[in-house]
Amino acid sequence: MSFRLRAARQGDLEPLYEMAKLTGGGFTNLPSDRDAIADKLERTGKAYGRDTQELSDELFVLVLENTETGAVRGTCQMMTQVGQQWPFYSYRTSTLTQHSQELDRTVRAELLSLTTDLEGSSEVGGLFLHPGERAGGLGLLLARSRYLFIAMHRKRFADRVIAELRGIIDERGGSPFWDGVAGRFFGMTFQEADYFNAINGNQFIADLMPKHPVYVAMLKESARTAIGVPHPSGRAAMRMLEKEGFAFEGYVDIFDGGPTMIARTDAVKSVAGAVEATIVATDLNSGERALVASGQLGDFRSSYAMRELRDSGVAIDRAASETLGVKTGDIVWSVAR
């Protein structure tokens, strides 16, 4: 069975909608709303159709396709410059130290401050793999193919890239962090607020969110312990991000308190290690395992392959050349698995 990542198109609406219904909430970039997904596909179609190499507010959606059946079994997204249509809010954790000479006591208070520090960054997100395909390294293919895409279209992405990980969601589908912080001001459940944000944007946060810092000690324990903690299903994703060079720098999501991971784009391992080369052979029988990508923008495709870097170019195996639709003389980008 062979899989490849490719650019999303309008015909992918229904499989994306069906996958969105499996996310279990808290997945803003893949809302279970057919119209919202259709809007994303329309926006990404415009991005793929714009061939000028400059940074602007764009969305690129990729889908994982079974090349034997044509079924779409996963997806991921890249936002080139967040915070352009609406402010991009985060909570930043910090510590305030105060000392009383009379009491001879020092008190350190942890704070959550509303900020737009990360505005203008690129973002990788929206990664979802169908539960029936969570084996064989397909999650890794989804995640790292985004960085090959960025390397291939570097001028269209910012110098800093972020990844927001879903936070703790309880058995009711609610968020302890939301209930303990923002939910007190909005009169909405986490699911209602998350859905509204996914469909309408987060301007309502700017309108109603208190602007003063929140003292962590005043929150319920369930909210405190959720700060900066990824959902159990996101722990592997956090480890993959750390291997790529991302780090948690104290920024958390305003809805569920999940960690925001940050990296310099050119320092991301799969961006820095990406190699552009001309195919010199497609009959490789053995070589190092790699991710290989071809095509620009709407023609982008990526898959696993065997590769051998040579002075004259790169050799890949026949199966990969067929999956990617490439031949000798074509240019591909690759990075070691």
Results as ranks from 00 to 15, higher is better:
residue 147 Y to M: 13
residue 334 S to G: 11
residue 224 R to K: 15
residue 164 E to M: 02
residue 288 E to K: 09
residue 302 S to Q: 04
residue 32 S to M: 00
residue 16 L to G: 02
residue 271 V to C: 03
residue 124 V to S: 12
residue 48 Y to L: 04
residue 49 G to S: 15
residue 78 M to A: 15
residue 69 T to V: 09
residue 4 R to V: 01
residue 43 R to I: 01
residue 112 L to Q: 08
residue 227 I to E: 11
residue 94 S to V: 01
residue 129 L to I: 03
residue 23 T to Q: 09
residue 109 A to L: 15
residue 280 V to S: 08
residue 196 F to A: 14
residue 221 E to G: 00
residue 240 M to I: 11
residue 3 F to D: 02
residue 37 I to T: 01
residue 43 R to T: 11
residue 63 V to S: 06
residue 166 R to L: 08
residue 148 L to I: 12
residue 152 M to K: 12
residue 288 E to T: 05
residue 155 K to L: 11
residue 81 Q to C: 12
residue 7 A to V: 02
residue 142 L to E: 09
residue 52 T to K: 13
residue 12 D to F: 10
residue 86 W to N: 13
residue 25 G to M: 04
residue 269 K to Q: 12
residue 45 G to T: 10
residue 119 E to L: 04
residue 237 A to Q: 04
residue 53 Q to W: 13
residue 35 D to G: 02
residue 277 A to H: 03
residue 120 G to D: 09
residue 93 T to W: 06
residue 32 S to K: 00
residue 242 E to R: 12
residue 300 F to Q: 04
residue 285 N to G: 14
residue 280 V to W: 06
residue 5 L to D: 01
residue 69 T to K: 06
residue 254 I to F: 12
residue 276 E to V: 08
residue 81 Q to R: 15
residue 125 G to A: 13
residue 188 M to T: 03
residue 86 W to T: 14
residue 164 E to T: 02
residue 288 E to P: 00
residue 257 G to M: 10
residue 70 G to H: 10
residue 176 P to M: 07
residue 227 I to K: 03
residue 246 F to G: 02
residue 313 G to S: 10
residue 320 A to E: 07
residue 224 R to G: 01
residue 139 G to T: 04
residue 68 E to I: 00
residue 85 Q to L: 14
residue 35 D to M: 09
residue 200 N to C: 09
residue 82 V to P: 03
residue 109 A to R: 13
residue 49 G to I: 00
residue 278 T to Q: 14
residue 21 K to T: 07
residue 214 V to M: 12
residue 206 A to G: 15
residue 240 M to N: 10
residue 219 L to I: 02
residue 71 A to M: 10
residue 133 E to I: 00
residue 269 K to V: 03
residue 254 I to S: 03
residue 325 G to M: 08
residue 61 V to A: 06
residue 151 A to F: 09
residue 185 F to V: 07
residue 315 A to N: 01
residue 192 E to D: 11
residue 137 G to M: 07
residue 5 L to P: 00
residue 51 D to C: 03
residue 123 E to I: 00
residue 211 K to E: 10
residue 94 S to R: 06
residue 120 G to W: 06
residue 206 A to R: 13
residue 74 G to C: 05
residue 187 G to A: 06
